[in-house]
Design a protein around this nucleic acid. Sequence first.
DNA 1: CCGAAATCCTAGCACTGCTAGACAAGCGAG
DNA 2: CTCGCTTGTCTAGCAGTGCTAGGATTTCGG
Lengths: 192, 192
Amino acid sequence: MSVQERKQRERAERERLIVATARELAEQQGWDAVTTRRLAERIEYSQPVLYSHFRGKREIIGAVALDGAAEMAAALRAATAAEDGPHARVTALARTYLDFAARNPAVYDAMFELDGGLAFAHEDTPQPLKDGFAALLETLDQVAGDGVHPGLFTEVFWAALHGLATLTRAGRLPPEDTGTRVALLVDRLAVA
Amino acid sequence: MSVQERKQRERAERERLIVATARELAEQQGWDAVTTRRLAERIEYSQPVLYSHFRGKREIIGAVALDGAAEMAAALRAATAAEDGPHARVTALARTYLDFAARNPAVYDAMFELDGGLAFAHEDTPQPLKDGFAALLETLDQVAGDGVHPGLFTEVFWAALHGLATLTRAGRLPPEDTGTRVALLVDRLAVA
DNA sequence: CCGAAATCCTAGCACTGCTAGACAAGCGAG
DNA sequence: CTCGCTTGTCTAGCAGTGCTAGGATTTCGG
């Protein structure tokens, strides 16, 4: 049995390599450069190997997205835990969110811009995505205000952050004023 | 000279046909289905004709985006003009924006999601885009609040709308609560 | 009416995601 | 240890993509 276990381990290892390589390549040269051929060459296997791990390119993007979601959730929790008071925590949350999106554009694209074939807002939503939303909710819950459903408030706040992230990265918003925009957003949306 | 004029007219007419057909096809079957071959077949010309009007597919997407921006700006102005009072106008603005995005997903994608090769936030930004932003600013200017730069406020509000639009359409947010989200957003962001 | 110029199309390139079928390596059974 | 078989991998290829070179056809000006 040990032989099979080793094989399974190696297979899982290779799968992680595929995802990590795809992410790296996307971050370096953009998702357009992530072709099955280039990806296969980088992991030093032939293309069909990719399809023995994933149904197709979409699923690879989806895997990168899940990794990213877990990472982002951890970053958000770490950033908010270091702050005192709801207002400071929300500010830190927003800054960290936008910072993550700016520093990992390819991963952010995999999560929200590209089609990774992931389910959302259903019971069959993958755990890391649920957890990412939960990380937002934990902090935003405290500033939703009376009579406002925390989940709905989180959705609105998240949408605002998402809009800022995407529009800034696409060159639609000048990046210099990000700090001011965050301050305005937090001051208005979050009730003490 | 009349002959040349007629030719120019026909050329312009054909260009409009290309853009309209691209938009129609994208709205019917998604942008993935808008290939140069299919598009060429629909306008009953060969592919190279497309390239005598546009540098490439990107520019076609850009042309659809510009059309859409003009349309959206008109819709926003019409909707806000019919309302009395700043709060009602902002609400109408937000509703109209999200409604436009929901009803014309392909056009909205061309404007913001896809790369149409358009410049933004510079002096060489095409006029319809500037005008779209101006349409937002006209209404939001009234509710920015004291000491808040109207342009910056508009950017934040716009980002929030954009986030709601994209996340809803991608299935990330349940569509039922759109009205509630808009109400929350307007109530908090807009200062009476 | 005829040469020149503008217009358009056929054919093809390099690339994409994805897959069938050949091939080799490693396994368990005798 | 050897034989058959499963398992894993690769080569080669398909249909489709955006885009373009070069030839054919139409249309214009003299």
